[in-house]
Amino acid sequence: MNLSVKIANLKFSNPVTVASGTFGAVGECWDLKAAKQLGAIVPKTVTLLPQQGNLPPRIVETPSGMVNAIGIENDGIDAFIENKLSMYAKIGVPVIVSISGKSDEEFQIMAEKLAGLSSVSAIELNLSCPNLKHKVLVAQDAGATQQVVALVRKIVNQPIIAKLSPNVTSIADIAAAAEAAGADAVSMVNTFQAMVIDVEKRKSMIGNFTGGLSGPAIRPIAVNMVYQTAQRIKIPIMAMGGISNAEDALQFLIAGATMVAVGTMSFIDPNTAIKVLDGIKVYMRKHKINDIKDLIGFIK
C-alpha cells in the first residue's frame, strides 16, 4: 500500500499531519513514537519578534468546536531556531515551519533565516495576519497574498505552503493568486472569525473580543472550500478543518486534498492524528486502493 504524497519535490510517507498551533513538544507529554508515524509535523506559527499573546480568556467551548484568540504567543523565530527546531527535526519526519509576519519585510527576514536550514523541510506562510500596509488580512487580499508568496519564493528553495483564511468571498481566488506567485501548495482552512457572548455579563467570552472558530463544527464548510479550490488550482492542498477521524479526513482527500492535518481535535484526544492514519489504511484495504493518489480528488 502506498500512502506517500509529495509537495513539489518533498516526499511525505503519508498524507497525515498536524495543523500549526495544535502540536508541540511540551515536557513529557509528547508521544515521540506517535509523532514519528506522521507524514510531517507543523509546529506552532512563529513570528519575527517574541509575542506575549492575547489577554485571557483566550478560548471558549462551542458546539462541536472552540473559539480561540491566542494571539500567536511565541518566543520569536530566533529562539525557535535555537531551542526547538533541532528537537522537532530529530523526530525524523519533514518539519514544516509556519511563519507569520506583520509586514512584507518581516516575512522577508524570517524567510532569510530559514532558507539555508536543512532541518526546515518546507515553509508555511500563515497569511491570516493583519498586514501593517493593508487594511485586511494578507489572506483576504489576492494582491497581498501574491506579493508575500512571490517575495518568499525569491528567497527560499524549500517548498512554500500558503495558509489561507476562509473569511473571504472566494478562497479559490486567493489560492489561485498564491499558485501564480509560486506557492507549491496551499493549506486551508484557517479558523472562521467568530464570537461568543456571555449574556449575563453582556460581554464577549474572549479577551480579544473576537476569535477564530475551529473543530468539527466547521468541517462541512471546509470540505466544500477544499473541493471548490481543487477545481481551480493544480498545486496540492493541505486540508484542515475539524478532522476528528479517518472518515472526516477521507472526505477532504476525496474532495481533492493531497494532505490532511488534524488540528483542534488533538486537544481533545492527542491520539487523533494516529487514529486518522490507521483509519485511512483500513479504508484503503477495504476498498482495495493500493495508492492514496487514486483517492485524491476522485469524487464520483
Binding site: 498551533g21 495544535t22 502540536f23 508541540g24 511540551v26 515536557g27 507529554c29 509528547w30 506552532k44 506575549q52 499573546g53 485571557p56 480568556p57 483566550r58 478560548i59 471558549v60 467551548e61 472552540m66 480561540n68 491566542i70 504567543e73 483542534t264 488533538s266 486537544f267 481533545i268 492527542p270
Partner: peptide, 22 residues
C-alpha cells in the same frame, strides 16, 4: 483554575498573568 482545551501546555489557551508574563 482556567478553562482548558489541551491540558498539556500546547494550545496556550488557559494562561494566567504572572510576574513573568503569561
Amino acid at each position: 483554575e482556567e478553562v482548558m482545551a489541551c491540558g498539556v501546555g500546547v494550545c496556550l489557551g488557559c494562561v494566567v498573568k504572572t510576574t513573568a508574563g503569561y
